[in-house]
């Protein structure tokens, strides 16, 4: 029986990073991503420093230095889109091909820009991976609530995460049943799409009915629209230090990005 564990994005552990206030962890991650976005093209030294920062945070979290690196290839398909800058950025031509009457020229500025986009994106993904790995879901939701996300939306996300595994399993069962019936193929494309559509409809109805049952059960247990927590978040001294350290490190990265441009 296949089963999907979505909650294994979190790595249980005891570390400085795990203990930090979840709000601080979210803010650190966003600051890091903003810093990457602000770095100019070709600031290789600053990218290297940022990579050092991610590695350092991974080690602080006791995840192993290359934890984020290993998981960070999810954003790669999108790179295809950025390939176009290779040809479109004005600069010194370094290679070219001719297709009929069209000429495709790769410029040095284009290459720099392409790899810079790649580096900035890849660094950002890594820090987001660390955030997910050291913050469990209830803490993450709590942080979102404190960071002024509308309570309704946080509640919706909370319910979503609670039932994600259940409905993912339900979807897998539907797909297994389809495979058993049709061995994964056959029919025309339209027919296959229609079968998938009916499965989606089936899943919708089952989910909808489940939400009705869930709500009845919640009412029976005295739900009054509020979620309570026994885990009040308080800023400790270490949280302030972590914030100060992040801001300082990112300021250095920015300085390196603008001064040590090669």
């Amino acid at each position: 029986m296949t089963h999907i564990h979505l909650s294994d994005r979190y790595r249980n552990g005891v570390s400085v990073m795990h203990r930090l206030d979840p709000r601080v962890k979210v803010i650190i991650t966003v600051l890091f991503i903003v810093s990457n976005t602000l770095l100019p093209d070709g600031a290789w030294m600053a990218y290297a420093l940022s990579l050092g920062l991610v590695t350092f945070v991974c080690m602080l979290a006791r995840l192993g230095a290359f934890f984020a690196l290993k998981r960070s290839f999810v954003a790669l398909p999108f790179v295809l889109v950025a390939i176009t800058v290779l040809f479109a950025t004005p600069g010194q031509t370094i290679a070219g091909w001719q297709f009929g009457d069209r000429v495709l020229l790769v410029t040095d500025a284009g290459v720099t820009r392409f790899f810079s986009i790649l580096a900035r994106s890849w660094l950002s993904v890594q820090m987001a991976i660390v955030l997910t790995a050291v913050t469990n879901i209830p803490d993450l939701l709590h942080a979102l609530r404190h960071l002024r996300t509308p309570p309704l939306l946080v509640g919706v996300i909370g319910f979503m995460l609670r039932y994600l595994d259940v409905l993912a399993d339900e979807a897998m069962r539907l797909m297994r049943a389809r495979d058993a019936r049709s061995a994964g193929g056959g029919g025309s494309l339209i027919w296959r799409a229609q079968v998938a559509g009916h499965m989606v409809g089936q899943l919708f109805v089952r989910s909808y009915e489940r939400s009705e049952r869930v709500y009845q059960a919640m009412l029976a247990r005295g739900f009054d629209g509020r979620f309570l927590t026994v885990n009040p978040h308080q800023m400790h001294e270490r949280d302030w230090w972590a914030l100060a350290g992040t801001v300082t490190a990112l300021a250095l990265v920015q300085a390196a990005g603008y001064m040590l441009r090669m």
Partner: peptide, 13 residues
């Protein structure tokens, strides 16, 4: 809240 939450999980699934 439960309806929208479970529907979000549904879209994901």
């Amino acid at each position: 809240m439960p309806l929208m939450g479970i529907m979000a999980a549904f879209i994901f699934a």
